[in-house]
């Protein structure tokens, strides 16, 4: 249908996309070279670490044999297991509370049209620009001045503060293109604003909430700078434990531990991507 009307000299894909000019071979080569370098710098060090973890003797590359014994050693180190569990709990709490704060901050900023809007959103974003070590030092100074012992709640608050820009930005970006009429439609069928939020807005914001949870979890799980100032002895997180261990020992066990972390992060990202799609949306 309608094919006869199309100009035969100007074939077009059926979805109406415009075909761009074909790039030159030199450009394509350059593009692949850049990509290759990128992966080399990003992944090669990790590859080295993974390889070292299989080395029976020492932290040396290339490995001089193959063993999985360092992985078994992980289970013999209660300090590390304890630290991993502490990190998990902390990261999960940070993810849930931080994302909740981020969602409400973004919703609030959207409805607030006052003169302080720019200042508030700038403030929420500031942890992106201020080095985390300064935020941590400031918090440390405060609790020191107030005479409070370092405890998990201060640590949690600090983790939330430094990761807050990510959920705020994610949710704000989605709200930016959000059709207000979807909420209004809920009001017209009798929903109060709170019911409209729960039944329409929040379910639709899932697309930015779930990625926020994942990214905040990973950032908190990996955080060293803030934790080193504010963690008390009961809450030695995994990065702190690794660092502490490395001061005295330097054996492939550390590489094995790191490999586990790399794999865990990758699996987490992969599963989440399958569940909700973290990458750019394909239309």
């Amino acid at each position: 249908m309608g094919g006869a009307l199309d100009d035969a000299r100007a074939p077009r894909p059926r979805d109406g996309r415009v075909i761009l000019m074909r790039p030159s071979p030199a450009f394509i080569a350059l593009r692949y070279a850049t990509l290759a370098l990128f992966f080399l710098f990003l992944l090669a060090p990790l590859g080295v670490l993974v390889a070292v973890s299989f080395n029976p003797t020492a932290m040396i590359f290339p490995p001089q044999g193959f063993t999985l014994k360092w992985y078994a050693v992980i289970l013999d180190k209660p300090d590390f297991l304890h630290a991993a569990w502490a990190s998990t709990k902390l990261a999960a709490l940070t993810a849930v509370l931080g994302t909740a704060c981020g969602v409400f901050a973004a919703l609030g900023l959207k409805n607030y049209g006052g003169p302080l809007k720019g200042a508030i959103s700038g403030l929420l974003m500031s942890p992106l620009f201020i080095p985390a070590v300064i935020v941590a030092l400031a918090l440390f100074q405060i609790i020191f001045t107030l005479g409070i012992q370092a405890n998990v709640w201060v640590l949690l608050a600090a983790h939330i503060v430094v990761t807050l820009p990510y959920p705020v930005r994610n949710v704000m970006a989605q709200l930016d293109g959000f059709d207000q009429r979807l909420e209004e439609a809920a009001l017209t069928v009798g929903a109060t604003p709170r019911q409209a939020l729960l039944r329409v807005t929040l379910p639709l914001l899932r697309a930015s909430i779930v990625p926020s949870l994942v990214i905040v979890f990973i950032l908190s799980w990996n955080n060293y700078t803030v934790s080193v100032f504010l963690a008390d002895k009961n809450w030695t997180t995994l990065p702190l434990q690794l660092r502490a261990y490395l001061q005295y020992e330097y054996e492939p066990f550390v590489a094995a531990m790191s490999t586990v972390l790399i794999v865990a992060s990758t699996v987490l990202l992969f599963v989440m991507d399958r569940l909700v799609g973290l990458g750019p949306k394909r239309k």
């Binding site: 009429r181 209004e184 439609a185 809920a186 017209t188 109060t192 379910p203």
Partner: peptide, 20 residues
């Protein structure tokens, strides 16, 4: 009165159906 108390039916220009 707020919208949700007015007992009206409203049809929007772009339909505004809830996509989820």
């Amino acid at each position: 009165d707020p919208v949700w108390k007015r007992e009206i039916g409203f049809v929007f220009q772009n339909f505004a159906l809830w996509p989820h």
